[in-house]
Design a protein around this nucleic acid. Sequence first.
DNA 1: TCCATCCCATCTCGAATGATGATGGATCAT
DNA 2: ATGATCCATCATCATTCGAGATGGGATGGA
Lengths: 295, 295
Amino acid sequence: MDAGDLRVFEAVARLGGMSRAAAELNTVQSNVTARIRVLEEQLGAELFERHSRGVALTAAGRRLMPYALQVISLLKDARRAVVDNGEPAGDLVIGSLETTLSMHLAPLLTGFVERWPAVDLSIRGGTTQETIEHVLERRLEGAFVSGPVNHPDLEEEKVFREELVVLTAPGISRLDWSAGLAGLRIVVLRSGCSYRQRLENILARRGVVGLRLLEFGTLEAIFGCVAAGMGITLLPRRMMERVWRDRRVAVHTLPPDESMVDTVFIRRRDSFVSSAQAAFLDHVRLGLAAAQAAE
Amino acid sequence: MDAGDLRVFEAVARLGGMSRAAAELNTVQSNVTARIRVLEEQLGAELFERHSRGVALTAAGRRLMPYALQVISLLKDARRAVVDNGEPAGDLVIGSLETTLSMHLAPLLTGFVERWPAVDLSIRGGTTQETIEHVLERRLEGAFVSGPVNHPDLEEEKVFREELVVLTAPGISRLDWSAGLAGLRIVVLRSGCSYRQRLENILARRGVVGLRLLEFGTLEAIFGCVAAGMGITLLPRRMMERVWRDRRVAVHTLPPDESMVDTVFIRRRDSFVSSAQAAFLDHVRLGLAAAQAAE
DNA sequence: TCCATCCCATCTCGAATGATGATGGATCAT
DNA sequence: ATGATCCATCATCATTCGAGATGGGATGGA
């Protein structure tokens, strides 16, 4: 049994067919068929059921799958571990909430790329849920998301805590259903935004339910929409202070148990921590501590 | 990078030479040299320092080693996982303390081999420390040892708790240094026995230190030696009751915090749990519960 | 029923890869 | 010096692997 065989096996299982797997692996179908057949002979068990529209895993194949996945990812990590000589370099792909990115991370990035020019950093914005998925699939080395995550395969480290506030149109004094919130919409940056569920919960406790959703691509649009009395949103207080200091929106402070949210850095427990990633985290921790001290 | 390459790499690193690795791998030295060279080219890093008496790992090689070990063991486990169709069968190698083996496990073994004739069970006796080492090296699928073990790579499950008692020659009423223990020896089954450290601690608290060691191969010899007034030993109470009911030794009961010892079953967290192992554990759990109920 | 389509199995051939044994250079102990 | 040990290199041979072509079975639509 060989790592190459397992790669073929994984592709066939995932794509449900040998021809499709061959296309993905840049080879020909006959090749895939042969290697699977050899693998099955070596193991003395059928790994796939062949049927007319492709193949499906047998019980034995299902038992093999987790091992195949782990071996493949281990080999990838091994290569990186060998090449990584302690000097941060190479690709580093990190995920982040868009608000965290623009508010906390962005100011630190120029410093990082100056300090470590050999690192090709890219940061992908996304919602907490999307981002967690990507980390689990190893498409991201790590990510900043709203915590706690509590996933057995993920390691999480609290990075900072911040306060969320509710923004409404001016003139609304209380967050309840008698205060004229009925008919407004919840305005979020993206539909899967983790703040949305949180805001719905906050409102539900005050008797406000069933608000429709409104989605915008930029923060400016969201602010404008809220100022115009069309909706209500939940955002970090600091973000509001920075970019929207003097506009006409009402800021509603929440009790700490509802308002405080931790941002955590997550990564797969079983993945290799590259020097680039370690350097980035150090840089971020330092930068955030400095920013906090400056307040 | 390939699993075969990693096997070669591991053998070279472990044996400290390409010729030696070639011998172990049933191939020729030139072959090993070539594969290592290819591997180094692929990774873009030197894995070994060549010197006149063999080779030694470089920093990059040391970084690769844990991955190589894990991939190799994963592939071994994968093969077993595929072949294991849920019906307990095949080899099952388990470790155990000798006392646990003779007292608790042995009576259950005949029942197990009758119930699962397809399993080739072998149980290796040894001290707790030896046995833990073997489990970590994957030479044993699991083992019964004195707990708690508290090793990050090991999973442990409490199997039963039992009471240890001190045996001395008759006429010794107290376990302290004024009671004539000076000059006696600590009698143990094997020199690394985990009871030995425990007994030394127990005696130390009572002011008795510096007893010499005496080692025997059989329990009968130990009992005889204690009865003859030559030494002192620490053994499970039940063992003493069973095989030595009416001999002339003094039994010293200890306070619970000193006497009670847990026996745990340990296995590597990352290893495959074969059906045979699961069936064995089930059998043991059931048998021990029945034995306890019968008392 | 017939045909087009999709998918897997098998075959052959050429290329790439792997293993072999011989050889040479370096180092170290005697 | 000499022999032993160990790694690197090379030419050669065997095996494996990949490409392409072909065939057979199942499916779905005309």
